[in-house]
């Protein structure tokens, strides 16, 4: 991705998080906790598990549809970050060569199961993480983290970072565009130019920090970032949380998919 693409990509995701849908209105604490529980549940499955993972697609699908998040956007991002997991996982079919019969003597290498299991887990975890931020504005995620007990210094750090990545990305984008416009034949893309660019960027950033500090001082800053209490856990939030906790529990500990399959098989045979 070019710098511009990355910038607009993150900007779009950020825009999505300020929508006003039923999912966006849920208490961010509920979303953060359920998402983390979801992730833990998914990766706690055994390495060869495939079928029992499938019901878990319900959670991202619900977030996506109720939250009105475009499918292709999330899908592309998931594909884009997949290389590492695929790279590590693709060795499984080669190395784990035990044969498994899946259907009337049709044999397949066991490694394929663990590979597909990795892919499914990857899709579930990455899409859910993306959907969390697509349905919860970053400041709200931060406030949730603060209320869940993370140090306030760290949280205000996150908030500053969020505030200024957009400003600095824009500034950087202008410099990168200037570089690209004048670096015919790619000669300007080397390390030397890069070092200069980030050097300049760094100095400007230090100056900016100074100005921000001044602005903070002039509005009474004395070392503590003030915070507002803003959430109350509603019945809807509770319902959401309870529903998904029960959901995760059932589908983690009971092979519901297989039971369903057997039941249907029984009906038709």
């Amino acid at each position: 991705m070019t710098f511009d693409e990355k910038y607009y990509n993150i900007g779009f995701l950020d825009q999505l998080s300020y929508k006003n849908t039923i999912v966006h209105r849920l208490d961010p604490r509920a979303k953060v906790i359920i998402t983390l529980l979801f992730l833990f549940t998914v990766i706690s499955f055994p390495k060869y598990e495939i079928v029992a993972l499938l019901p878990f697609f319900l959670y991202p699908v619900l977030l996506m549809t109720l939250g009105e998040i475009p499918f292709m956007f999330i899908f592309k991002k998931v594909v884009f970050v997949s290389p590492f997991a695929v790279f590590i996982g693709i060795f499984n079919p080669l190395l784990d060569s035990g044969q498994v019969s899946i259907f009337h003597g049709f044999m397949i290498s066991a490694g394929w199961f663990s590979f597909f299991s990795i892919l499914i887990k990857f899709t579930l975890t990455v899409s859910t993480a993306l959907l969390l931020i697509a349905t919860t504005s970053f400041p709200n995620v931060c406030h949730a983290l603060r209320q869940l007990g993370l140090p306030s210094l760290f949280v205000s750090q996150l908030l500053f970072l969020y505030r200024y990545i957009f400003v600095l990305m824009e500034e950087t984008m202008r410099i990168v565009r200037a570089r690209n416009m004048r670096s015919y034949e790619k000669r300007g893309h080397g390390i030397r130019v890069f070092v200069r660019i980030i050097g300049i960027l760094f100095l400007r950033t230090v100056e900016r920090a100074e100005r921000i500090y001044f602005a903070m001082l002039s509005r009474g800053f004395q070392g503590d970032m003030p915070t507002l209490k803003r959430f109350h856990f509603s019945r809807g939030d509770l319902g959401f949380a309870v529903f998904f906790i029960v959901f995760l529990f059932i589908f983690r500990f009971y092979p519901a998919t297989e039971i369903l399959g057997r039941f249907v098989q029984g009906v038709f045979s």
Binding site: P139, C142, Y162, I212
Partner: peptide
């Protein structure tokens, strides 16, 4: 530089 908080309200 002046608006350093994550939302206008804050």
């Amino acid at each position: 530089d002046q608006l350093f908080m994550p939302t206008v309200y804050e």
